[in-house]
Amino acid sequence: MHDLLPLAVSATAVLITFLYASWQDLRTRTVLTITWYPAAAIGGIAVLYFWYRQFQQPTAITISILAISLIVCIMMGGFAKAGMFGWADAKAMILLAATVPVTPFAAWIFPSLALATLVNAGIIALIVPAALLTRNTIRKEQAPFWLKCSGMPVPGETLTRHFGFIAEEITDGDPITRTFLPAASSIRALKKNSALSIRNLRESPEKFTRELELYQRCGSIWITYGVPFMIPITLGYILALLGFSLPDAVISLLI
């Protein structure tokens, strides 16, 4: 591949966008649609020039890379529409596949930059459950296994400083009764203005005064601590840009 400078510009624009999107996602659990527009415009111009130069002397590799990029874009759009993938994460992967088909900073990686990024992100995302399980085991915290892998107890008075969802049903009384909620409770909390959502508690404290007081009286309360997938995607993208692909690494070990 030659004339990779346009892709370097596009890759940098995408990286800046991913970093900003990660910050938004971590802070508010949403990414504004306008976030993707600057990188799409810059990357669109750059990738058109890149493909123009490549198809002056097309090769099988050139055609296969273009085909993979198109397949990833269609696949991610389909996953998001089917509810299997968040729209912000899908838009990030579509932006990446469309505007940075190969890394300009390292050799070509298998099967593509976008797919290597996605696999890298999946592996990185597994670090969080492992870290939480280790923490909770060392501290001898008592909770269902799934919650030990996805959450931790936090002080009630600092609850709104955290991100995630309440993982216990608290009933006021003397004494206060507590019951662990099922894993699906956080999904239901996303679909309605629920007091289980820490974001709702933080943004509308006047609406949830009673709940906040009750949570503080508990001393500590279990929450599910979900790291936005946009963050692993960004880290996976950085690794892929530098030429690290988990599929490549596995294949190299098998050969």
Rank of each mutant, 00 (worst) to 15 (best):
M1H: 11
L5H: 12
L7S: 10
A11L: 03
A11I: 04
T12Y: 09
V14Y: 06
I16R: 07
I16Y: 10
F18G: 00
A21I: 02
R29M: 09
T30P: 07
A39G: 05
A41V: 14
G43R: 03
G44F: 07
Q56R: 11
L66T: 04
L70F: 15
L70V: 15
I74V: 13
M75L: 13
M75C: 12
A82I: 07
A82D: 04
G83N: 04
A90G: 08
A92F: 00
M93R: 05
M93L: 15
I94H: 00
T99M: 03
T103K: 02
T103Q: 02
A107W: 05
W108L: 14
I109K: 08
F110L: 08
P111Y: 01
S112Q: 08
A114M: 02
L118C: 07
V119K: 02
V119S: 03
G122P: 03
I124H: 02
A125N: 12
A125L: 05
L126E: 14
I127F: 13
I127T: 06
L132S: 05
R135T: 03
N136H: 05
R139K: 14
P144W: 14
F145T: 14
W146M: 12
K148C: 00
S150V: 05
S150R: 13
G151D: 03
G151F: 08
G151Y: 08
M152V: 15
P153F: 14
E157Y: 15
E157D: 15
I166E: 14
A167T: 09
D172C: 01
I176T: 01
R178K: 13
T179R: 14
S186D: 13
I187V: 15
K192L: 12
S194D: 13
A195C: 09
A195R: 07
A195K: 09
R199F: 03
N200E: 10
N200Y: 06
T209M: 10
R210K: 13
L212M: 11
L214F: 12
Y215T: 06
R217D: 03
R217I: 01
C218E: 06
C218V: 04
G219Y: 02
S220N: 15
S220R: 15
I223D: 09
P228C: 00
P228I: 01
P232C: 04
I233A: 03
G236T: 04
L239C: 13
A240H: 11
F244V: 11
F244S: 08
L246G: 01
P247I: 11
A249R: 14
V250M: 12
